[in-house]
Design a protein around this nucleic acid. Structure first.
Lengths: 227, 227
DNA sequence: GTCTATAGGTGGATAGAC
DNA sequence: GTCTATCCACCTATAGAC
């Protein structure tokens, strides 16, 4: 994280930052070498080529994320607490490394020429299915609404923190902090909100949902014509 | 959208698709020319350089999105209906042009070397503030919970559909459809879910929120130690 | 308006000295 | 292990014929 001992780590650190900020295609080998304080040709001593280096960066990153997410679940003792814990872990991880979420976002977006399919699959398996299971458990216990798809609910829950950090500049503008993005305490406040928002949506009694002129559970997708 | 009449539009269409799928840096002028069915040198007759072309693509796109979002609000007659209408509009726009959300995602992520700050600002002003105002209106009317930051709630609401489409491959894996992403009917189902999820979170009575051993409104951020 | 040809520059990757 | 020097491919952009 600071003053890496060996050259290999220095290169990985520099590459992680540059790939995150500029993207794979826009980052050059020479830039990485310069940022790592070594000659660019040296990269080929440690890594086969640019793409291999990129994959190693991704692997290191996602492995850490999976571990952090798993830990969050291990510490929880109830479905609700698990969700709060996960959102908190998301917020902590994303906030501590401002450029990491960008790299993941790029990877998701670039996924046609996918580099990290296996890691994403693992992330899905480890974190996501556990979150789904937590939601199902809450439903069985009667704490959470049963008329809710657990998988969809899990996506909605996770999406909030991810979006907040990925769309950082846009969120900054929206909240009136400029393109630099919101300050850390706003990020923490949003993390608390995100957990509350998800819990509220999960625990709301079914009667509280549809009670307006708009068609809610009807199959028709036509919105009412102007009267 | 299909068989464009003039060359300029053909180039813009081809560029939109390629920039979306591969990103700005990874897309070459020659690829765009080939995809548009014209010689690559011709691009410089219509556009000053690659970056200008990119900006025009973005402008065309975001202008359309802003218009679609505004229309969604105009058709609504209640705060709840407005939210459903907006989520529906999001889903329709994102689904009809599968590669567009990626381009926007890239732009958000790439925002350090920002190309679209002005457009994002406008999008924020036009859509986001209207959504916030709708939420406030619902709060005043007693339909929505008052112990909720309208801006945060707006972000949470919007994040769901955006994340679903941006993280398409990951979502596909998660839901068991493979990296190609979820089929259209799953996307539609999620859109209905997203609106419900947001409305449920907004309308839940305050009493329904904190009722577990975990510290909820207390200031302490320490999670309970293992017993 | 659309093409051919090409200049000018940069990037990924290798050879080989130290 | 780390560096210098360099090759080759390819990319942006321009010049100019048609």
């Amino acid at each position: 994280m600071s003053e890496p001992v060996d050259t290999r780590t220095a290169i990985l650190d520099a590459a992680e930052r540059l790939f995150s900020v500029r993207g794979f295609a826009a980052t050059t080998i020479k830039q990485i070498g310069a940022a790592a304080g070594v000659n660019s040709a040296l990269l080929y001593y440690y890594f086969a080529d640019k793409e291999t280096l990129y994959r190693e960066v991704l692997g290191r990153l996602l492995t850490g994320l999976i571990a952090a997410g798993g830990k969050a679940f291990d510490e929880a003792h109830s479905p609700e607490e698990a969700i709060r814990s996960l959102v908190r872990a998301q917020a902590a991880t994303l906030a501590s490394t401002p450029f990491v979420p960008r790299l993941i976002a790029r990877e998701l977006v670039d996924n046609d020429a996918s580099h990290a399919t296996q890691h994403i699959t693992k992330l899905a398996a480890e974190i996501f299915t556990r979150l789904c299971e937590m939601i199902r458990e809450g439903q069985r216990a009667g704490i959470f609404r049963s008329n809710l798809d657990p998988q969809f609910a899990a996506i909605s829950t996770i999406s909030q923190m991810v979006y907040f950090h990925i769309a950082r500049p846009a969120v900054g503008i929206i909240l009136g902090h400029g393109t630099a993005g919101p300050p850390p305490d706003t990020a923490r406040a949003f993390a608390r909100h995100a957990a509350d928002f998800a819990i509220a949506a999960l625990t709301a009694p079914p009667s509280a949902i549809p009670r307006t002129p708009s068609p809610t559970r009807s199959r028709s997708r036509m919105s009412r014509r102007k009267a």
